[in-house]
Amino acid sequence: MQNGFYTVAGAMVTQFNRLDQISNNLANLNTNGYKEQNLVIGDFMRIYQQKRDDLPLQNQTKEAAKFLNRSINRVPHIVNEYNDFSMGPMKATGNPLDLALGEKDLFFAVETPAGVRLTRDGAFKLDEQGRVVTKEGYPVLSSGYFKSRQPIYVPAEAVNLKIDAGGRIEYMDQTALDTPVYVDRLMVVRVEDPESLKNEGGNLFTTEGGLKESELTIVTQTSAVRQGMIEKSNVNPVRQMTELIETNRLVEMYQKAMNAQMDDLNSDAINKLASVRA
Score class of each variant (00 low, 15 high):
Asn3Asp: 10
Gly4Leu: 08
Phe5Gln: 08
Thr7Arg: 07
Val8Phe: 08
Val8Gly: 03
Ala9Trp: 06
Met12Val: 09
Met12Gly: 06
Met12Leu: 15
Gln15Ala: 14
Asn17Ser: 15
Leu19Val: 10
Asp20Pro: 03
Ile22Ser: 00
Asn24Glu: 08
Asn25Cys: 08
Asn25Phe: 03
Leu29Trp: 09
Leu29Gly: 07
Asn30Gln: 14
Tyr34Lys: 07
Tyr34Arg: 11
Lys35Met: 08
Asn38Thr: 10
Val40Gly: 11
Asp43His: 04
Phe44Thr: 02
Arg46Trp: 05
Leu57Gln: 13
Asn69His: 12
Ile72Arg: 09
Ile72Asn: 13
Val75Met: 12
Pro76Ala: 10
Val79Phe: 06
Asn83Ser: 15
Phe85Asn: 11
Phe85Glu: 04
Met90Gln: 13
Pro96Glu: 09
Pro96Asp: 11
Pro96Asn: 11
Leu97His: 11
Asp98Ile: 00
Leu99Trp: 05
Ala100Gly: 10
Leu101Phe: 03
Gly102Arg: 14
Gly102Cys: 03
Leu106Cys: 00
Ala109His: 07
Glu111Asp: 14
Gly115Gln: 05
Leu118Glu: 08
Arg120His: 13
Arg120Ser: 10
Asp121Pro: 07
Asp121Val: 03
Gly122Glu: 12
Lys125Ser: 05
Asp127Cys: 06
Gln129His: 08
Gly130Val: 06
Gly130Pro: 07
Arg131Cys: 05
Arg131Lys: 13
Glu136Thr: 03
Glu136Val: 00
Tyr138Ala: 05
Pro139Ile: 09
Pro139Trp: 05
Pro139Asn: 05
Val140Phe: 00
Leu141Val: 03
Ser142Ala: 14
Ser142Met: 09
Tyr145Cys: 12
Ile152Asp: 02
Val154His: 14
Asn160Pro: 01
Ala165Ser: 15
Gly167Thr: 01
Arg168Ser: 15
Arg168Met: 12
Glu170Lys: 04
Met172Ala: 11
Met172Cys: 02
Met172His: 04
Asp173Glu: 05
Gln174Ala: 11
Thr175Asp: 06
Asp178Ala: 14
Asp178Ile: 11
Val183Asp: 03
Leu186Phe: 00
Met187Val: 09
Arg190Lys: 14
Arg190Pro: 06
Glu192Phe: 05
Glu195Cys: 00
Glu195Pro: 01
Glu195Gln: 14
Leu197Glu: 05
Leu197Arg: 06
Lys198Ala: 04
Gly201Val: 01
Thr207Ala: 08
Gly210Thr: 04
Gly210Cys: 07
Lys212Gln: 15
Ser214Asn: 08
Leu216Ser: 09
Thr220Glu: 11
Thr222Cys: 08
Arg226Lys: 10
Gln227Lys: 09
Glu231Lys: 04
Asn234Lys: 07
Pro237Leu: 00
Pro237Val: 00
Val238Ser: 09
Met241Tyr: 01
Glu243Lys: 10
Leu244Trp: 01
Met253Gln: 12
Tyr254Trp: 04
Asp263Ala: 13
Asp263Gln: 15
Asp264Leu: 14
Ala269Lys: 10
Ile270Gln: 15
Ala274Tyr: 13
Arg277Pro: 02
